Amino acid sequence: MPMTLSRKEQSVVTREAVLDSAEHLFSKNGVSKTTLEKIAQHANVTRGAIYFHFRNKNELFAAMLDRAWQPVHESLSNCTKHEDVSVMCALREAVVTAIGTLRSDSRNRQVTDILLNKSEFIDENARVIHCVRSNAQLAISNIRQALQHGVQRGELSTALDVNVIAQLIHAQLSGTVHDVLRYPYLSPVDSCICAIEALFLLIGEKYSMYLADASPQYSCT
């Protein structure tokens, strides 16, 4: 006998189904050509069910983006919580893992592909760029906090400008994501991870108080 879901559990199932359908249709047809009506039909729910969870397509888009990239933001945020490894090692691992998810996590890759290749930031979709900027700002803020924590713990030199280096690391991360999805044959994931390692090696050699932080953890031979 099938188990009956509670109202709360059914609400969660419906929300996930809507997000799954939006992700599929955005990827297949593009954001501008995908309506809430089409998403409702694909998810086999009413438009009212969609509006119960999301006020409009932009809010739905933002939730889809958050679902895919929240683990990355959490990983960056947790870099200040590791007591057994240095902040730079934790930060490097978080960034390398974020790049690796483009190969290992189909949802992350598909949502990021939608963001880069299936979205038009004009007309009614121009508001979508707000969540894109918020996503970048959150990543930069988490990286900046991790670097500041490293300085406070005495792991990084006080000469390190946390704002500049946070921007540098994020630029490398976002640029790598862009290149992997736009130019996969020119920018395979392994090569991009090696580039990330090289960046952290340079930062570590200049600002790290520990030699181990300057040693690459990924084989680039």
Results as ranks from 00 to 15, higher is better:
residue 87 V to I: 13
residue 191 S to Y: 07
residue 144 R to Q: 11
residue 176 T to R: 13
residue 158 T to G: 05
residue 158 T to S: 14
residue 197 E to G: 08
residue 116 L to W: 12
residue 116 L to V: 08
residue 165 I to H: 03
residue 188 P to C: 06
residue 81 K to P: 01
residue 92 R to E: 01
residue 104 S to V: 03
residue 166 A to Y: 01
residue 99 I to A: 14
residue 142 N to I: 00
residue 202 L to G: 07
residue 172 Q to P: 04
residue 158 T to M: 09
residue 184 P to W: 01
residue 158 T to E: 05
residue 108 N to G: 04
residue 107 R to Q: 10
residue 93 E to N: 09
residue 141 S to T: 01
residue 74 E to A: 06
residue 158 T to I: 12
residue 99 I to R: 10
residue 168 L to T: 12
residue 89 C to Y: 02
residue 88 M to Q: 06
residue 71 P to F: 00
residue 146 A to L: 04
residue 189 V to R: 07
residue 120 E to Y: 06
residue 114 I to C: 08
residue 105 D to M: 02
residue 173 L to P: 06
residue 138 L to S: 09
residue 137 Q to A: 08
residue 158 T to H: 12
residue 147 L to N: 01
residue 166 A to M: 11
residue 203 I to D: 10
residue 99 I to D: 07
residue 193 I to M: 12
residue 102 L to P: 06
residue 118 K to E: 14
residue 161 D to E: 12
residue 129 I to M: 15
residue 78 N to K: 14
residue 184 P to I: 06
residue 187 S to D: 05
residue 119 S to D: 02
residue 112 T to V: 03
residue 75 S to V: 00
residue 147 L to P: 06
residue 95 V to Q: 08
residue 151 V to R: 13
residue 174 S to P: 03
residue 155 E to N: 13
residue 195 A to F: 07
residue 95 V to R: 07
residue 147 L to K: 02
residue 109 R to I: 03
residue 182 R to I: 06
residue 90 A to K: 03
residue 134 S to D: 14
residue 156 L to E: 02
residue 174 S to K: 11
residue 160 L to A: 07
residue 101 T to A: 09
residue 186 L to F: 11
residue 198 A to E: 12
residue 163 N to M: 04
residue 112 T to H: 11
residue 149 H to C: 13
residue 113 D to P: 04
residue 105 D to T: 02
residue 199 L to Y: 00
residue 176 T to M: 12
residue 146 A to G: 15
residue 204 G to V: 00
residue 91 L to D: 03
residue 145 Q to I: 02
residue 174 S to I: 05
residue 78 N to G: 05
residue 117 N to K: 13
residue 72 V to W: 04
residue 106 S to E: 08
residue 85 V to G: 03
residue 106 S to K: 15
residue 109 R to Q: 08
residue 203 I to Q: 07
residue 80 T to H: 06
residue 100 G to E: 10
residue 178 H to M: 11
residue 134 S to R: 07
residue 154 G to H: 00
residue 119 S to H: 13
residue 84 D to R: 15
residue 147 L to D: 01
residue 82 H to G: 02
residue 173 L to H: 10
residue 149 H to L: 02
residue 83 E to N: 15
residue 169 I to W: 10
residue 94 A to Y: 00
residue 137 Q to C: 03
residue 147 L to T: 00
residue 196 I to K: 11
residue 73 H to W: 03
residue 123 D to S: 08
residue 108 N to M: 13
residue 163 N to G: 15
residue 180 V to G: 11
residue 177 V to L: 12
residue 73 H to L: 10
residue 142 N to E: 09
residue 115 L to W: 09
residue 141 S to D: 09
residue 183 Y to E: 10
residue 120 E to H: 08
residue 159 A to I: 05
residue 142 N to R: 09
residue 101 T to V: 05
residue 178 H to T: 10
residue 116 L to H: 08
residue 182 R to Q: 06
residue 100 G to I: 01
residue 161 D to I: 00
residue 172 Q to M: 15
residue 128 V to M: 10
residue 167 Q to S: 14
residue 97 T to Q: 12
residue 90 A to S: 14
residue 84 D to I: 09
residue 186 L to P: 03
residue 180 V to P: 04
residue 150 G to S: 04
residue 72 V to H: 09
residue 138 L to D: 05
